[in-house]
């Protein structure tokens, strides 16, 4: 049976923990709002980019000289996995769900005789992937969202990817990140970046898409547009990830705060019982002592 003092110490330390977790929750809530706003602000650009790209892709469909970023290299031997996680922990299953998916993909690819390369974005991606795929990790990029996530930092990553692609270091590039659905649910999403796959959500719109004049020609525009689109896709994934991270942390810290509360209650009951038992014991000792006299 723990002494009164032990219990008091435990209660106090749990209270301190609770203070920290609830503060972290509050901070995440504020950051989540900002991240969501940023993701919201990026939407118009992404939507228009996709629209233009779609109409271009349609008019390029019949031709066989499409740029490699759109058509691919014609092989799928070497795969590049861009694993996006956060730099910090304490955000529930956020990081481990991404790396679990990435590990599974890497294993499947290897089982099919493909070569896998991994670009880790975020410290946690490297830490959790290196146990199994140490030799596949070609680089780690850290502190992307510091002090603020900007388009430039996304563009830098995209540039790196496209340089590697031009150098023929891989054939297919897939990014793994968490898509933000709500503060409680995030969906692990693998998305293929190269060759660029247009989502087929509103394919019907293609049929009545307006016919455009192109200046210069389609190919030149496409060649200009695809690298931009790559940056945009990376930026978008980073934004979604940032929002998801904060959401996951908020939920995790909310749970932790509640758990700490429960624990404090239990410990307090225990403490009070022990104190009462001590008092009763002392009284019995005094009374029996008095009776003996």
């Amino acid at each position: 049976m723990p002494s009164l003092k032990d219990l008091k110490v435990r209660i106090n330390s749990t209270k301190n923990t609770q203070k920290i977790t609830s503060a972290m929750k509050m901070v995440s809530a504020a950051k989540l709002r900002r991240a969501q706003e940023q993701a919201e602000a990026a939407r118009p650009y992404a939507e228009r980019m996709e629209k233009v790209l779609r109409s271009l892709a349609v008019s390029m469909a019949g031709k066989d000289n499409a740029p490699a970023l759109l058509a691919g290299t014609g092989r799928d031997q070497v795969h590049l996995l861009v694993v996006m996680t956060s730099d910090r922990g304490l955000c529930g299953a956020f990081n481990s769900s991404i790396t679990r998916q990435a590990r599974k993909m890497a294993r499947d690819l290897k089982a099919n005789g493909k070569q896998v390369k991994i670009l880790a974005v975020g410290r946690k991606a490297r830490d959790q992937m290196k146990r199994e795929f140490l030799n596949e990790i070609i680089a780690t990029i850290e502190d992307v969202g510091k002090p603020r996530l900007t388009f430039d930092s996304a563009a830098k990553i995209a540039q790196r990817i496209s340089h590697m692609f031009e150098a023929g270091e891989f054939d297919v590039c897939t990014v793994v990140y968490n898509k933000f659905k709500s503060a409680i649910t995030q969906i692990v999403t693998p998305q293929q970046l190269i060759p660029f796959a247009l989502s087929s959500a509103n394919e019907n719109a293609d049929a009545n898409a307006a016919i455009y004049e192109y200046e210069p020609d389609e190919e030149a525009i496409l060649a200009d547009l695809l690298p931009r689109n790559l940056s945009m896709q990376v930026y978008r994934a980073l934004l979604e990830n940032a929002a998801s991270e904060q959401g996951a942390r908020m939920t995790a810290m909310d749970n932790a705060t509640r758990n700490a509360g429960d624990m404090i209650n239990k410990l307090t009951i225990n403490y009070n019982r022990t104190r009462q038992a001590n008092i009763t014991k002392e009284l019995i000792e005094i009374i029996s002592g008095a009776e003996a006299v």
């Binding site: 233009v52 109409s55 016919i211 455009y212 004049e213 192109y214 200046e215 210069p216 525009i221 547009l225």
Partner: peptide, 19 residues
């Protein structure tokens, strides 16, 4: 400022995509 020269856009301009 288009790549092939500046162009003005007024209402009723034909459909165009330009870098």
């Amino acid at each position: 400022p288009g790549v092939e020269g500046d162009f003005a856009v007024l209402a009723g301009h034909s459909n165009l995509i330009s870098t």
